[in-house]
């Protein structure tokens, strides 16, 4: 029970991060391998605001979200849109965007290393115990989970009920038809990319309240987010959430029963099983 709840708490934040990546991959069609670095940058911002100004991470995110939205929107407009335009095929865009976002991720790691150094960073915020169904948990984990739930819920409602959200989902399902019914695909792709980046950075700020990060851990989170997106199905919000919770639980299980050093191995095992048996994702339909 203890493990299950810890896993769920972790999975909640994972869901947020993976939602960010899913917006970028599902809508903007960019497999953003610098996603983890955006997360670490969000964590850095929260850390810096807290240690320098005693500002709560839960306030920082309100500043962080618009800033990272603009940053990611610019990244899409300046770096990625030219690639989309020059690509002759889906495969070429895939290769180009993988290489470009790898480049971006290393540049970001390099910059963070020179600004903050290579040390681990963490801070103590809301590190008080809280009792849930008889077991004790750290309050920061619970608070981060609740914030993730609120943001995920807001995003879900926005995607399903607002005009822009519906258009974004239309692009994810059928980009060519979306263009035909008058949806400005380029504009919305940039919007989705920016939004995805902002969501990821906020996820990073939430994670930093209870996980220790350093400048080069981004890639691990990129991997986890990718695995979640693939497990849940590209462009599938519900699938992403289920996959994230599942990964959170499996990781916690492995860490507490086997060895904390094997969490990525556990994520990978899940990934291999999905690739072998359900490459279309947990909830996805079989491609025809």
């Amino acid at each position: 029970m203890d493990i299950l709840i810890t896993g769920l708490l972790l999975g909640g934040t994972y869901a947020l991060i993976a939602m960010g990546l899913n917006l970028q991959y599902g809508v903007a069609r960019i497999m953003n391998l610098a996603n983890g670095e955006m997360l670490v940058a969000g964590g850095f911002a929260a850390f810096w605001m807290y240690t320098a100004g005693q500002i709560s991470p839960f306030l920082t995110i309100f500043l962080l979200a618009p800033l990272t939205f603009v940053l990611n929107w610019l990244i899409y407009r300046i770096m990625l849109q030219p690639l989309v335009k020059r690509a002759k095929s889906r495969g070429q865009l895939e290769t180009d965007s993988i290489l470009a976002t790898f480049g971006l991720s290393f540049v970001m790691v390099g910059l963070m290393l020179s600004v903050f150094g290579g040390d681990y960073f963490n801070y103590s915020y809301l590190a008080r115990p809280i009792v849930i169904v008889g077991d004790t948990f750290a309050l920061n984990r619970v608070a981060a989970f609740l914030a993730a739930v609120v943001i995920c819920g807001a995003l879900y409602l926005w995607l399903n009920h607002s005009r822009a959200g519906l258009s974004i989902r239309a692009i994810a399902v059928a980009p060519d038809s979306a263009r035909l019914v008058g949806i400005n695909v380029t504009h919305l792709a940039a919007l989705a990319f920016g939004l995805g980046g902002a969501v990821t950075a906020v996820g990073g700020a939430l994670l930093s309240t209870y996980l220790t990060l350093d400048a080069s851990t981004g890639v691990i989170f990129t991997l986890k987010a990718l695995i979640i997106v693939i497990m849940g199905g590209v462009g599938d919000v519900r699938g992403t959430i289920i996959a994230a919770l599942l990964l959170g639980i499996v990781e916690t299980l492995v860490a507490s029963l086997l060895d904390p050093g094997l969490t990525l191995a556990a994520a990978y095992t899940l990934f291999i099983l999905i690739l072998l048996f359900r490459p279309q994702g947990l909830c996805g339909k079989k491609p025809t």
């Binding site: 470009a100 480049g103 971006l104 290393f106 540049v107 970001m108 790691v109 390099g110 080069s216």
Partner: peptide, 14 residues
Amino acid sequence: QTTLLLGVAFLIIV
């Protein structure tokens, strides 16, 4: 700065 170099090299290639 090796990481930065790696990143810049990727961007130059693309």
